[in-house]
């Protein structure tokens, strides 16, 4: 079947709906911000995480400079944690802002309070304003993707990773209560981004195989993620780093539109598990390929994903800030070349 030529937005949204596309979309569900791009548009970290105009300007480079089919303005995973009251380390241009998880703000479920100014706090409002700017400027041509943290990740930030993981073992019921209560933040921030113009949302919820079992994902998160699909009316892209093959079956049951997966998982094996139930995206290795190698190696990884039938291609996670633009540009280039080589002559 021939598909009419699409723009980036049409292409990404069709792929997220599982529909036919003119070519595989190049998608960035996390961040492709780099120091080079910051210099190019004079929008450096940390200000680009805190000022909407700079956030929008830096995010737009993913489309204008790199040629991706998406724009993602939320570079980090800390905006809502800042609004919830976590202690922050905003860092400098060459480092990522982080939450000081060694200084948790909550201990018990009753400590969980979503502040009344959660959506007007400067660090959440910044994202909403940046989405509005991007929607106005690029919204017809390219998919604007927002990002709202899942409750498991918020648990790491607000309770501290170690206390939160120990709680999950010592008192699973209490942990589930915490997750339920934190879900309000996920939904509120997600809905606000949709209202601001986001076409889709990435939902990072780091129940990674490097920390917890696949059974943990099923016990604590699968049903919550099903609920989030019902409550957030745009395509959702679940993001979990690390090894995830042992939970992909459960992830595929959630109804999420896509799963942003890590290079630790073999594309063909992952496709075999999820089949048509959820679109896979990502998998291009960050530290060893995009950061440390050259365009030829990037191309090989893109081809490996396309050969396996992965429906959206992109980096596995937020890329290191020192990654070269040339390597990132190679992703859309390789996708186009692969499709040219695989097109059926009329």
């Amino acid at each position: 079947m021939t598909v009419k030529p699409m723009n980036g937005r049409e292409r990404v949204l069709a792929a997220l709906r599982g529909e036919a596309v003119d070519r595989t979309p190049v998608c960035n569900p996390t961040s492709v911000a780099t120091v080079e791009l910051m210099d190019l548009v004079d929008a450096p970290f940390p200000d680009a995480n805190r000022k909407p105009e700079l956030m929008a300007r830096l995010a737009a480079t993913g489309y204008t400079e790199l040629g991706f089919d998406t724009i993602m303005p939320v570079f980090s995973i800390i905006q809502e944690s800042s609004a919830l009251g976590c202690k922050m380390q905003w860092e400098q241009k060459d480092n990522w802002p982080t939450v000081r998880m060694r200084e948790p703000i909550w201990v018990e479920p009753d400590d969980i309070k979503i502040p009344t100014d959660f959506l007007t706090h400067p660090d959440t409002k910044c994202v909403l304003d940046a989405i509005r700017i991007l929607k106005k400027e690029y919204g017809n041509d390219v998919a604007i993707i927002g990002k709202t943290m899942g409750p498991w990740t918020l648990g790491y930030h607000c309770f501290g990773v170690e206390p939160f993981l120990l709680m999950s073992l010592d008192d699973p019921g209490k942990t589930k209560l915490c997750l339920d209560r934190m879900t309000k933040a996920t939904v509120d921030f997600g809905v606000a981004q949709i209202e601001a113009g986001a076409d889709a949302l990435t939902l990072p919820d780091h129940a990674t195989g490097d920390l917890v079992s696949g059974d943990y994902y099923k016990r604590f998160l699968r049903d919550l993620h099903i609920e989030l699909v019902e409550r957030l009316p745009v395509p959702l892209i679940l993001h979990i780093c690390g090894r995830t093959l042992d939970r992909m079956e459960y992830i595929a049951q959630t109804g999420m539109a896509a799963f942003h997966y890590d290079s630790k998982n073999e594309p063909a094996e992952a496709m075999d598990i999820v089949k048509e139930r959820i679109a896979l995206v990502g998998n291009i290795n960050n530290p060893e390929t995009l950061f440390a190698k050259g365009p030829e190696e990037v191309r090989q990884e893109v081809y490996r994903n396309l050969d396996a039938g992965v429906p959206l291609v992109g980096p596995e996670c937020a890329i290191p800030l020192q990654t070269s633009i040339e390597n990132l540009k190679e992703i859309p280039r390789a996708v186009k070349d692969w499709h040219r080589d695989h097109s059926t002559p009329n």
Binding site: L165, L166, L169, G209, D210, L211, V212, S213, D246
Partner: peptide
């Protein structure tokens, strides 16, 4: 060998 994960290891470390 992935019989246990970090929460269980943390519990043993504790």
């Amino acid at each position: 060998e992935n019989f246990i994960y970090v929460p269980e290891v943390l519990s043993c470390a504790r």
